[in-house]
Amino acid sequence: MTQLSTSDLPAVAGLVDHGTNDHGYGVFGLGSFTFERDEYFATVRWPSGHHRISADDFLRAIQRDIAWEFFYGTVNFDGVLGTVNHYGRVDVCAGRFSKEHQAAGMAHTETFPTEVVAEAFLTIADDWTNEGFDPFVAPRETGSAFGRKNGSNPEALRRRRVTAERMVGAPGDEPLRTDDNGHPVNAAFSDVPQDEPVVRAEAGFADELVAFNLFAYLSRSPVTFNPSVVSACRDSLACPTTEEYILPIIHGNDRVEWFIQLSDEMVWEIEDGATGAKRATVVMKAGDVSAMPADIRHQGYSPKRSMLLVWENASTQLPDLIASGTLPSHPDVWSAR
């Protein structure tokens, strides 16, 4: 595998604008990667190879990568392209987690400061997202990503991610979602009760008695596959999300994370994080709990809109402890307890 870092490059290396192609889309360079799209496909080239991906899939994936600030660990756009977050630096990868690309000498990684990749990806997404296409919503809710360049949709690319410091609804924290603040109930959750808890605070304790209807809150999420923090117990973050269709990326976490299916059903296809080899299928129905080990990558399928609680440990020490073997890549519950 070839690996270049910013220190190897003479002038890093923000996005280079190579002009507009015959389809009306910008052609961009980032390091030695080139990004180009036509009416149906995005094509990424690097010194030892190239890869084509459907334009809608590419835009849905790059949008999550931007919105999640490269998330925890690896965000694979598909089996070939992706990013790895080093929290301050980001690897842009091609074939790194494909044993065939590795064997053929076609795997390639370049490392950039986070802000360089963030700005570059947002510029690409802005240029390649046509008016009427929203990469953050379910397919039934959006227009087409395809065709010649046709306008833009900057608002869809700049939604603010919810990150509660203590809990949604707590004084000074993230507000509840309502019609009045632009969060109507999604049609797919029109049967979810909207009642709120009944809070009776004694004098002086109004700020400490806090409760909200999480299921109603989730029913008002305008997007899919966007884990957002609703409660925080030190580094323990409850990050529920609403899911419909397919997780647009294949996530390979650098720590153990947990899924708790709150409603309906999802299926997770599990692959080896380093090679993509098939390892398991996890079927989750309402109330099911499953760990996602740190050495796998997973992609979820939600036949109808569902609610999923993603539970993360945000400790900055975990990636190194797991990578070094100090901690196991799966929950070590069988021997110790």
Partner: peptide, 21 residues
Amino acid sequence: HPSGGVQVIDDDPRHYVFSNV
């Protein structure tokens, strides 16, 4: 509370610590 489960292809199901609330 019907439950799903882990269908193993090449893994240890215990790594998923699968249960139902």
